[in-house]
């Protein structure tokens, strides 16, 4: 059940082994990369299995759409490797377990899937952009993709089909929804990357949150006040699985008149926010990454930082603010352009 679609023959004839030579966390030359890839293909132990920071980037680096990271995760789990300390892994896996509390609900489109992050609703799903939207959230529709960071692909295989089915049965069909907007980049990535890679069918149309924002903002074009801001963009791990959504960021920035500063660590060279690496107990690396991110934003002259992922915001937002930059989600940026006041966390 749910076998990874991975073509070993493609690797055999791959000249660059970009998946490993471009890795920002394990330094490998082409020969070493070939050797480690060979071991992985044979299901043998490889230093990659224990040194991988689970940044997902190799999914993007592979020019052939093979799934090097998903394969690493499968092998990590098969070989009993735990990137995070075991008690943390256990607690995290249990904490977001399905609760079996689904019920039919009347919804009006557009419907925003908040995933397991319902608590963000009162901060982020506010203002006129969201007039009339319905939200859905909870463990029973949680995408579970975060367990890639814990080498627990089996948990995703076990829970995701049920979560997808819950969304279909209780929300989409009942309300005849044409699409489901994914608040969290990671949900969209689950539906568009992980699910097809493992053969899980997604019987509805997922829409990226930025696509939704773009639509709504275009409708309100006349109301937009250009924002004279220099903004650093913090790209999350999940976005490596759906690089095709990257242009949405530039389109949104352009629409609101904000300048996306030229960071060293952006786009294909983005760095993890550090939270996952810290959870893995690799604190020195996590601190180094955090510092590199912040220094990079400052050097690029940013006055604000827009996060795609709410978890990255939570992880890095405070440090960003301490350096005098304004931490924002993309929806916050849009709301500022519409002249709305943002609600702070403490309020």
């Amino acid at each position: 059940m749910y076998q990874l679609k991975f073509d070993e023959n493609v690797c055999a004839s791959c000249a660059t082994h970009d998946c490993l030579t471009r890795c920002q966390y394990i330094k490998l030359d082409i020969e070493q990369a070939k050797e480690e890839r060979r071991k992985i293909l044979l299901g043998e132990d490889s230093r990659v299995l224990s040194e991988c920071a689970t940044c997902y980037a190799c999914e993007e680096y592979c020019p052939y759409g093979n799934h090097p990271f998903y394969q690493i995760v499968e092998l990590q789990e098969a070989r009993g490797i735990h990137p995070a300390p075991k008690p943390i892994e256990k607690q995290q896996v249990r904490m977001l377990a399905p609760e079996g509390k689904m019920d039919y609900r009347e919804l009006s489109a557009p419907v925003i899937d908040m995933c397991a992050f319902g608590m963000f609703e009162k901060f982020s799903i506010q203002g006129k952009l969201f007039d009339g939207v319905s939200t859905i959230s909870g463990n029973d529709i949680f995408c579970n993709l975060m367990y890639l960071h814990f080498a627990k692909n089996s948990v995703i295989k076990e829970r995701l089909p049920k979560a997808v089915d819950n969304i279909r049965k209780y929300y989409v069909e009942k309300n005849k929804l044409a699409e489901v907007v994914c608040f969290h980049d990671e949900c969209y990535a689950t539906f568009k990357s992980w699910a097809p890679a493992f053969g899980v069918e997604v019987p509805f149309k997922p829409v990226h949150f930025f696509e939704f924002l773009l639509r709504e903002m275009r409708e309100r074009k006349g109301e937009i006040r250009q924002l004279p801001m220099r903004v650093a963009y913090q790209r999350p791990c999940s976005n490596r699985l759906i690089p095709e959504t990257q242009p949405l960021v530039d389109e949104l920035f352009e629409l609101v008149g904000a300048e996306r500063v030229q960071r060293k660590y952006d786009r294909e060279n983005a760095l993890c926010c550090g939270a996952v690496i810290m959870t893995h107990g690799r604190d020195d690396l996590a601190e180094d990454i955090r510092k590199r991110n912040i220094d990079d934003m400052k050097e690029a002259g940013a006055t604000a930082c827009v996060f795609n992922c709410p978890y990255c915001l939570v992880a890095l937002g405070e440090a960003v603010a301490q350096e005098g930059m304004m931490p924002l989600l993309m929806s916050d940026l849009c709301r500022l352009a519409l002249g709305e006041q943002l609600k702070g966390w403490g309020e």
């Binding site: 300390p85 943390i88 959870t279 107990g281 939570v314 992880a315």
Partner: peptide, 16 residues
């Protein structure tokens, strides 16, 4: 304990 994966610090953001 961390290196042996037997114990670990939970990542808890300040707001929590």
């Amino acid at each position: 304990y961390i290196n042996q994966k037997e114990g670990g610090f939970m990542f808890v953001p300040t707001i929590a």
